[in-house]
Design a protein around this nucleic acid. Structure first.
Lengths: 267, 267
DNA sequence: TCAAAAGTGTTCTTATTACACCCATGG
DNA sequence: CCATGGGTGTAATAAGAACACTTTTGA
């Protein structure tokens, strides 16, 4: 899992051998001749696969979390890894990322963004696998069980406490987190991580944990409310041992309308 | 060229057939069993390839340009396309993008950034090819001839006047241009498109043509000079039929130093 | 009555915008 | 002497940063 492990180990491939092979393919490409090659010959050029890996972010207990799986097979048996899979031959790339997410969480239609493709030759010990990294944002409250899935086990980890992962997954996680930090200020995607009803303090803590910095309470509230994107529900928290906070929801419709009028979110 | 054309057409692949194949691979991945499969069986799962496509931007005559090649082979024979190639089996992804650039322009060590991977099943008429899109920024003055390369012909096109391209290359170009628009305000990469010595007006026109909007001359100069990233060469233009402008160069060292001190470029 | 988090405005500083005229040069 | 683009400053406005106390609730 996590990464395509399906190919047998690629034989050490000298530069000359591979370049020659590749050049044959290039010539083919140029001329579009399609000679009937012996499949085992061609196969070495195509002995490669692509996978998707999905950094699934959640927010709970004031902390940003990431959903990791524990590998049940070599390589990296027992290590924590990002959920991922090979892309099916008849499957669009984005669909593969959605499938990985759904198999693991049962969730569909969540926020999903492609980030970067990792294609170092030796990133996978068993062969050439390039992987396309996505991140998605889920409401942890919506996530119930791990349905019968490919994962040996799956668990939320605080992003700040993730240890050493399989493959180049630490690098992938870092890259996705950096992207999220950028994106969360440029688009109102933070709400994807919160339940439909939330307090301003929850929202602020969400931003603080993603951006990794403290924000001024009054300035934060002033700014976010001045955008008129939050609908005050005239409800308050219940069962808290202090003054209960007002509940808001993100007004998606108004946002779409503002965008159409040229507004752009910036925090 | 541009996209990998090396594979023979993939037989129409029913959902059931492919899913089954894919699931076999997934099981393999899980268990890491490596049965000795008949290569022609495995091949259908691996009948896919990855390529890189490179949006090479240049700036000349006050306009943003993109270097396109004309396809000499089907599919899309005669159409303009982005330069690209299949990735060699022993080649890192970034290296493939650098190679494509160097084969076409002879240039090395230029600014290159990965943008997005395009992986729709039917984006390539001859088979499953996912392509990783990069853009690079070159100084057109450094670009001399098209060295013996895969391209039938290559030419700079004004970005605003690019017509219909092969494959999904219009979408790739648009995506890279959008990314460039973002990035050029967040990092001092605009200079990559200018010769080492340039005038402030040239720099302003560069930004205007990338961002697609007019900027105020005085405000632009005030802002850019206040960053202290430009070194005034105490030289002026020669051979112009008007008051000659002062020449500047971008001070890369100072920039690195400022970054280390926490400065971040923003325009 | 205490603890804990909610809620609320003002001042200061900094960045952004808008705007018009004289200058140096080559033809 | 004219056409062309080069070069310059100030005032008004808007955005961002800093900052401390009162309120409401449950225990």
């Amino acid at each position: 899992m996590g990464d395509g492990c399906a190919m047998r180990p690629v034989k050490a491939c000298t530069d000359e051998y591979c370049k020659k092979k590749a050049n044959v393919a290039v010539v083919l490409a140029r001329n579009n001749r399609l000679p009937s090659w012996d499949m085992s010959e061609v196969a070495s050029f195509f002995k490669s696969a692509f996978s998707v890996d999905n950094v699934i972010f959640g927010f709970d207990g004031g902390e940003l979390k990431v959903l990791l799986i524990q590998r049940g097979a070599a390589p990296y048996r027992g290590k924590w890894a990002l959920p991922g899979d090979l892309v099916y031959p008849n499957e669009d790339l984005d669909a593969a990322a959605e499938r990985v997410l759904e198999q693991l969480t049962g969730l569909r239609g969540v926020y999903l963004e492609q980030v970067k493709t990792f294609g170092a030759v030796n990133r996978h010990p068993l062969g050439r696998v390039i992987t396309v990294a996505y991140y998605s944002l889920v409401k942890i409250s919506d996530y119930t069980v791990t349905p019968a899935s490919f994962a040996h086990s799956a668990r939320w980890h605080a992003v700040s406490k993730v240890g050493e992962l399989a493959f180049d997954h630490n690098e992938i996680l870092d890259t996705c987190l950096r992207r999220l930090k950028l994106k969360v200020r440029m688009a109102p995607i933070g709400f994807e991580l919160l339940p439909p009803k939330f307090t301003l303090t929850e929202l602020q803590h969400l931003y603080e944990s993603i951006l990794g910095e403290k924000l001024d309470k009054r300035n934060f509230r002033k700014k976010i409310l001045s955008m008129n994107l939050l609908h005050d529900l005239n409800e308050v928290q219940e069962g808290v041992a202090h003054r209960p906070a007002r509940l808001y929801r993100f007004d998606r419709q108004t946002y779409q309308q503002f965008v159409a009028e040229g507004f752009s979110f910036y925090l």
